[in-house]
């Protein structure tokens, strides 16, 4: 059976909020190392990959592999009841029909208990290869969100170009063109503002802004975001959750016929 108690319960709500507009039904795959999720949007353009490691929970117990087939719209309805400092506990049997979700107030004077019906979801697990990316950019997640949102007002697509001079986000739309360039930036006192660009070779790729803006719904999870690019390879956008738990998005580049 599964029993997992999360003191940073808002993490769960933020993860679900970040992915529910991209994927609707998905399996939360539980095993002794933690809870993982992998789901692709209907158009096969974006892939979500999440791992909440066992050490993010206290206690965490899962004796065998359990797949929790969850409708995220339904889970969102349950998570509405979650309050800021609540502890959340997930419980399920080995072959579960439902997921038991408990919210406890930090003062332990209120316990809310929900059973969420589960579904059978036939999802193929895809192998995501370890990739040596040509460019890796770590930057403030709010900055990335602002750039994507601002450029989306002008165009459907953005070209991301990483060179030794920096990383350039540019778009061309009906009303004109726009571009934002970021350079390496180190702030010793406010490290969360740093822009770190690691480059082995120049990269230029074009992506749909609709999807990037969607990924930015994960911004509340972390003040930093990592963007990894290689020519002709899906873009990786990563938000670290707690410790080494993560939420990753992969996005197919646009290629000219």
């Amino acid at each position: 059976m599964l029993e997992a108690r999360l003191s940073q319960s808002m993490v769960l709500k933020k993860v679900v909020d970040a992915i529910k507009d991209l994927v609707q039904d998905c399996n939360f795959d539980c095993n002794d190392s933690g809870i993982a999720l992998q789901a692709m949007d209907n158009s096969h353009v974006a892939l979500v990959s999440m791992l909440l490691k066992a050490e993010s929970f206290e206690p965490y117990r899962c004796d065998r592999n359990i797949a929790l087939g969850v409708n995220l719209v339904s889970l969102t309805k349950v998570l509405r009841a979650l309050q800021n400092d609540d502890l959340v506990t997930l419980k399920a049997d080995d072959a579960p029909d439902s997921l038991n979700i408990t919210f406890e107030s930090s003062t332990a004077d209120r316990i809310s208990e929900y059973d969420l019906k589960l579904m059978d979801i036939d999802q193929e697990h895809l192998g995501i290869p370890d990739t040596e990316y040509a460019a890796t950019v770590t930057m403030p997640s709010t900055e990335f969100k602002r750039i994507c949102t601002d450029l989306q007002a002008m165009s459907e697509s953005v070209t991301i170009e990483a060179t030794k001079d920096g990383i350039k986000f540019s778009c061309a739309g009906d009303i004109g063109n726009g571009a934002v360039t970021l350079r390496n930036y180190q702030n010793v006192e406010k490290e969360h503002l740093n822009v770190d660009i690691e480059l082995t070779e120049p990269v230029s790729l074009t992506f749909s802004l609709k999807y990037l803006v969607n990924f930015c719904k994960a911004q509340p999870l972390s003040d930093r975001v990592k963007i990894c690019l290689s020519n002709e390879v899906p873009l990786l956008v990563e938000y670290l959750i707690t410790g080494t738990s993560y939420l990753r998005f992969y996005l197919a580049p646009k290629v000219r016929d």
């Binding site: 192998g127 697509s157 290629v255």
Partner: peptide, 14 residues
């Protein structure tokens, strides 16, 4: 026209 790589095919081949 722009063509978007199918991630399913990409990852399944990997």
């Amino acid at each position: 026209a722009d063509f978007q790589l199918d991630l399913y095919n990409y990852f399944i081949k990997s």
